[in-house]
């Protein structure tokens, strides 16, 4: 029940409610726990509530870090064992 994934806000209604889209499916969730949500934002949904907004910039940074790591390791391994290429 902890598994929750980021969903995109597609509509914001009255009474702290919003519609989010998740893998092509639409779902109504509560925005009672977070402020300043806009249509287009990604939010982490858990048991019908948006728990937190997703920071797109931070997500990009983390991904960039993964890629850099992969490249570094690939370069290192290529250097360490040139014969295996």
């Amino acid at each position: 029940m902890c598994l929750a994934i980021p969903a995109r806000v597609v509509d914001i209604g009255p009474d702290e409610r919003a519609v989010v889209e998740l893998d092509g499916m639409r779902k109504e969730v509560s925005l009672a726990l977070i402020d300043d949500v806009r249509v287009g934002d990604y939010v982490i949904i858990h048991v019908g509530f948006a728990l937190q907004k997703l920071d797109a910039q931070e997500a990009e940074k983390t991904l960039a870090l993964f890629m850099e790591m992969s490249r570094e390791v690939a370069a290192f391994e290529a250097e360490a064992s040139p014969s295996s290429r």
Binding site: I5, P6, L54, L63, F66, S70, V73, F76
Partner: peptide, 23 residues
């Protein structure tokens, strides 16, 4: 799915696994 699929990339996983082996 945005913010999901990128974090499941198999190629990057292999890269991270190699980095872990090295560390």
């Amino acid at each position: 799915m945005k913010y999901v699929d990128e974090f499941r990339d198999g190629h990057l996983a292999q890269g991270l696994a190699a980095a872990i082996r090295r560390a």
